[in-house]
Amino acid sequence: MDTGKLTTGRKILWAVVSVLVAVYALFPVVWIISLSLKSPSDVGNQQFWPTAVSWENYELIFTGQASELFVPALINSIGICLIATAIAVVLATLTAYAVSRLDFPGKKFILTMALGVSIFPVISIVTPLFNLWSRIGLYDTWLGLIIPYLSLTLPISIWTLAAFFRQIPWELEQAAQVDGATSWQAFRKVIVPLASPGVFTTAIIAFFIAWNDFLYGISLTSTSAARPVPAALSFFTGASQFEEPAGAIAAAAIVVTIPVVVLVLLFQRQIVAGLTSGAVKG
C-alpha cells in the first residue's frame, strides 16, 4: 500500500468518489424529507421541493387521525427494540466471552449455529411461528416479537463481540487473576471496560436490526398492542381512498429515522477503536 502523501490527482479522485457516494446515499433521505414537508395537495406538484413547507403530515401522525396508528406503534417499536437489544447484548457478551476465552466441546458448533440462524430466511419460519404463537398466546404481544428479534440480533452480536474479545490480550485477565481477582472480578473490572466500545457497537447494530424489521412485525401482530412502526406504516391510509398517504408515510419514516441518528451521535465517542493501546508492547 502507498502510505505516503496523496498526490493532487488522487485527492481529487477521492473527493469525486466521496461526493458521488454521499449523494447516492443521501438523495433518498433528502427526497423523503422534502416529501414529508409537502401538504397532500402539494405531493403531485412534480417538483423536488415542496411549494410551501407544511407540517401537516407531522400533525397528522402525531395528533391527527393517523396518530392512533402511529403513536402506539412508535412506543411498541422503541420498547420492543430496546428490550430485545438489552437481552441480546447481555447474552451475547457472556457467550462471546466464553467462546473467545474458554475451551469447551461444542464451541465451533455454537458459532456455526449462530451463523446458520442469522442467514436463515425469515420468511420461511414466519408462518410456523405464526401458528405456534397463536396457539400459546404469544401472538400480538411484545414478548411475541422480542423472541424472534433475539434470533435476529443474537447471532450478529455474538460474532461481533467475539471478535472484540479476541482483540483483548489474554494476559490482562491473567494479570488480574495473579493480582488477586476472581474470574468474575477480572471479567468485570478489566475485560468489560475494555470491551465497552465493542458492546456499544454491537448494541447499536442489534437495535438497528430489530428496529428495521418488517416481516415479523406485520405477521405476528394484529393490533396496536404490539405492532411496530414499520408494520404500522403499511396501514396508513389517505383521507379518502382516492388519496395516497405518501406525505404521512414520509413523515413517519423521518420520525423513525431520528432515534437511529440520535443513537449513533450519542455513542459515537464510545465507538472509538484503539482503547486497548498501551496495554501491551506494540
Binding site: 490480550p169 494476559e171 490482562l172 491473567q174 494479570a175 488480574a176 495473579v178 493480582d179 478489566v190 471496560p193 475494555l194 482503547l275 486497548t276 493501546s277 498501551g278 496495554a279 501491551v280 508492547k281 506494540g282
Partner: peptide
C-alpha cells in the same frame, strides 16, 4: 505471588 508479564499486561483503561 506477584508476576511481571513479558508484554507488561497493564490495564489500559
Amino acid at each position: 505471588l506477584a508476576m511481571v508479564f513479558q508484554n507488561y499486561a497493564l490495564y489500559p483503561h
